[in-house]
Design a binder for these strands. Structure first.
Length: 219
DNA sequence: ATCCCGAGGG
DNA sequence: CCCTCTGGAT
């Protein structure tokens, strides 16, 4: 196959995104918290876990520790007990307590609506920050997680698709340059769901994949 | 077995 | 660049 021109690749990206929009009808955020603080904590907890399981522990967690002031002063063991089913519970408990304490100290418990403010908090990287910015504040962002890295690589949506360990921030810049800001959050979400449901890490379901026709990596 | 909407640390 | 943190669902 001849080398794809930049223009052709951009057209393919938009076509494939349109197909994903049909494939995944409801792009609602699974972590649906109106309160930015609770969304932030829930998003931190969702690392290496499913949103469904996070939602099983958050009612009790936020019933006891509804805000930064209370969670920041929580006993470690008490938090551990509540979030134990998530796995990584020891590290995560320390993380969210430290996060809440820092948030209380630096911002009076109010979640900052900026990338710099969010990523300065312990346990918050660009991925988490972008999720919070998008879902709590309506600020366009493109969360890049392992699914997004894998899927954009396989689809060759980025120039460095050969790189086994791409820089997430670089991927974020590269992909957002190809879509209007109002589509970033939705695009990321759909790529993640697509990666989970079809474009698996080890055994991608190319046989039933709706993008197989145009995917350069399809088996 | 395989995977789960990461981030910090060495 | 690697590693670790962890339990539950499928």
């Amino acid at each position: 196959m001849a080398r794809e021109t930049k223009r052709a690749r951009l057209a393919r990206m938009h076509e494939e995104y349109a197909i994903l929009c049909e494939l995944i009808p409801a792009p609602a955020c699974a972590l649906d918290f109106a309160d930015p603080f609770q969304l932030l904590v829930a998003t931190v907890l969702s690392a290496q876990t499913t949103d469904r399981r996070v939602n099983t522990v958050t009612p009790e967690l936020f019933d006891r520790f509804p805000d930064a002031a209370t969670l920041g002063r929580a006993r470690l063991e008490e938090v551990e007990e509540i979030i134990r089913p998530l796995g990584f519970y020891h590290a995560k408990s320390r993380n969210i307590i430290a996060l809440a304490a820092q948030l209380e100290a630096d911002h009076g418990g109010v979640v900052p609506a900026t990338m710099d403010g969010l990523t300065a908090l312990p346990g918050v990287g660009r991925k988490t920050a972008n999720v919070v910015l998008g879902n709590a504040f309506g600020i366009p962002g493109f969360p890049v997680d392992t699914h997004v890295l894998r899927v954009t690589g396989r689809l060759r949506w980025r120039a460095d698709w050969r790189d086994a360990h791409p820089d997430p921030a670089k991927v974020e810049r590269e992909i957002t340059a190809c879509f209007p800001p109002e589509e970033w959050t939705d695009l990321s979400h759909r790529l993640i769901l697509f990666g989970r449901s079809t474009c698996h890490a080890r055994k991608p379901a190319c046989g039933t994949c709706p993008l197989a026709d145009s995917c350069p990596s399809a088996a």
